[in-house]
């Protein structure tokens, strides 16, 4: 084999092309952001668009700074993050175990199937008034909403993953005399790890939908509250600023899950 220092000409060209492509993609990503922000700002500055309605990047930046100093932005972020993370964890953990139960017993699965179908197709926000009456107007109600929205998808994704375990691999384990717990531990759980990771990614999004929707319905704090409040008093700067903060947080949380994925793969292939 050739030494690393003696790469062929074609190889060098190929590697250079990949690197150039990457640089181009990243440059264009930033360029696009700058263009959008720039055009928006220019249009607002020259009053081509009404910045009272559409706000503008500079006003958003100013609002975020004000929020940070005067209105305790960190508290709002903290409240929303708390609701989202707790909702996410409950939905994911509970969903995983319910999916396990449904995998374990075909009878329970058949009995509960119509209920799951109905719960899945029901728009969960319709349950808003009931949730308010039952849980009041605090974080509890919002977490419940986040769990409700996330758990069905978590259950269905995981159950599909468990059920798609290779029948012949199960047969193989049975021929070794494996019982159901052994099949579960040795095969079904490790085999469905990729499904677990994609379930976590979907559930992060679902948890945000749930917590923000919950805050729209009932709340006195949080980013969803700021957005709704801003809309009601027609402060579009506040709405836009909160949305930007939300974007950053949601991306951050998704990145955490992606990091977890990389960690799991690395651990597995150690």
């Amino acid at each position: 084999m050739k030494n690393k220092n003696q790469l062929s000409r074609d190889r060098i060209l190929y590697l250079r092309k990949i690197k150039r492509d990457n640089v181009l993609v990243w440059t264009m990503r930033f360029a696009l952001l700058i263009i959008i922000v720039g055009v928006w700002e220019v249009l607002a500055t020259f009053n081509i668009i009404d910045s009272f309605i559409s706000s503008s990047p500079s006003r958003i930046a100013k609002t975020i700074k004000e929020l940070f100093v005067e209105n305790n932005l960190l508290k709002h972020i903290g409240v929303t993050m708390y609701e989202t993370v707790v909702g996410f964890l409950i939905a994911v953990i509970l969903g995983y175990f319910i999916a396990l139960l449904l995998w374990w017993s075909e009878r329970i699965r058949r009995i509960l199937e119509p209920y799951i179908v109905v719960l899945n197709s029901l728009p969960k926000i319709a349950l808003g008034p009931i949730i308010i009456v039952w849980f009041g107007s605090g974080s509890k109600a919002i977490i419940f909403m986040a769990v409700l929205i996330g758990i069905i998808v978590a259950i269905m994704t995981m159950l599909n993953g468990f059920l798609s375990t290779d029948k012949n691999k199960i047969l193989l384990l049975k021929s070794m005399g494996a019982n159901k717990i052994q099949i579960l531990i040795k095969l079904v759980i490790p085999g469905s790890l990729p499904t677990l990771i994609s379930m976590l990614k979907i559930s992060v999004g679902m948890a945000w939908v749930g917590s923000i929707m919950g805050e729209y319905l009932v709340s006195r704090a949080g980013l969803g509250y700021l957005i709704v409040y801003g809309g009601q008093v027609f402060k579009l700067d506040l709405v836009m600023a909160s949305t930007v903060v939300l974007c950053v947080l949601a991306t951050f949380m998704y990145a955490m899950v992606a990091l977890l994925e990389r960690f799991i793969i690395k651990f597995k292939m150690k």
């Binding site: 012949n168 691999k169 193989l172 070794m176 005399g177």
Partner: peptide
């Protein structure tokens, strides 16, 4: 000992760990 059409080695286990599988089960 049962051997099937495909090898059905578990991709998350090393060859060694795959070979130990019947020992673990039994």
């Amino acid at each position: 000992g049962y051997m099937l059409q495909k090898d059905h080695l578990f991709p998350w286990r090393t060859i060694e760990k795959n070979v130990f599988l019947p020992l673990e089960i039994k």
